[in-house]
Simulated assay, not measured.
Amino acid sequence: MIRGWLAEGIIMVQKTPYYSYVVGELPKGCQYCVRGEKLVLFVTGVCPRNCFYCPLSPWRRKDVVYANERPVRSEKDIIEEAKIQDARGAGITGGDPLARLSRTVEYIRLLKEEFGKKFHIHLYTTGILASEEALEKLYDAGLDEIRFHPDLFQPNSKFFEREIENMKKAFDFGWDVGGEVPAVPGFEDRIKWFASLLDKLGAKFLNINELEFSETNLRALLDRGYKPVSDESSAIKGSLEMGLKVLEWGEKNTSLNYHLCTAKLKDAVQLRNRLKRMAKNVARPYMEITEDGTLRFGIAEYDDLEELYEFLVEEAEVPREWLYINWEKKRIEMPVEVAEELADAIEGDVKFYIVEEYPTWDRIEVERIPL
């Protein structure tokens, strides 16, 4: 049972407005994240481990860099993406960012120099490569929060002892230290052990993520007997419930802050809020911003776009400022109302649609309605 505050002021497990659960307070990095204010900076897909539950897509399991959905080819791409998002911080992830330490340190410095010391940066690492020298470089660059993800779920891991010993070194620096692990059903005792260790070392928090199926971990999870919550969900049955048990145990037995991050939070809150922030900065005058942060507008498709454009301006008398030729996607974009009127008035090979797409670099189309 999820409880609220007791009259005596004792902290219990609380459900947040973000469809997640917390004991104490959200880690600072999460506070920015749920508001959609964190740039997701993927610095490399390289990782010294090969976790059976890793959700990374095949095209990211390489030495590639992304700022949100944008492939990074220069530092300007990172800054531009952060500005489009109105980001107030960044989460540095991978792979393991420490597998490309110089690059990671360079990006931390870049963001701090561009946006100031208050730009909050947190980083995820396995801990395998977190030597004292590496940690010192990250701290000196301005990293605010470091989250360790040791190999709790694979028996006889050759990395485990090194991960734990390296994690202990992180407490010599003046940043926030915490743990972040998936809620893998069947490993409740291992996560409790990790929580106890974090508490003993003086960590601030433990984040537990609801485990989900992905394209790349599906077979490994099914082979281990894990099942989805339902046909409509990618969340794994029993993961959320186990996470809640750890939180209730942790509230009674440790002084850590806990956050159980659900699959719903990532889609319904984090992504949605980020899209809204981006949409305000990328929407053209003819585009509507929906409640979900997507862009909605009309389009016309035809073999000769220049011919169609001139016809719409000269013959249909559509103001030029209402039309935009998108050469890359081979279409003319316009307000929804204009597309609806033109679809009723123009016959022939011109096709009109109402489309809805993400305001992200890749502009994924989520809906197309023919007129």
Rank of each mutant, 00 (worst) to 15 (best):
L6G: 12
I11G: 02
I11M: 08
P17V: 01
Y18I: 04
Y18H: 12
Y19R: 05
Y19D: 04
L26T: 08
L26N: 10
C30H: 07
C33N: 06
L39K: 02
V40N: 08
F42S: 05
L56A: 13
Y66E: 14
V72H: 04
D77H: 09
D77M: 12
I78K: 03
A82G: 05
A82N: 03
Q85I: 12
D86A: 15
G95T: 12
L98E: 01
S102C: 05
R103N: 06
E113H: 14
E113C: 14
G116K: 14
I121H: 10
G127L: 06
L129I: 13
A130C: 13
D140N: 13
D151T: 08
F153N: 02
I164M: 03
K168L: 01
A183L: 00
D189W: 02
K192Q: 12
F194E: 01
A195F: 00
L201G: 05
K204T: 02
L206N: 04
I208W: 03
N217H: 06
L218K: 09
D223N: 15
R224N: 08
I236S: 00
G238Y: 07
G243M: 06
V246Y: 03
S255G: 15
Y258Q: 09
Y258E: 12
L260G: 11
A263S: 15
K266D: 12
N273P: 10
A279S: 13
R284C: 10
Y286W: 12
E288Y: 10
E288P: 09
G298K: 03
E301S: 13
E315C: 09
A316T: 06
W322I: 11
K330P: 09
K330C: 13
P335T: 07
A339D: 01
E340L: 09
I346G: 11
E347Q: 11
W361G: 02
D362H: 08
R368S: 10
P370T: 03
P370V: 07
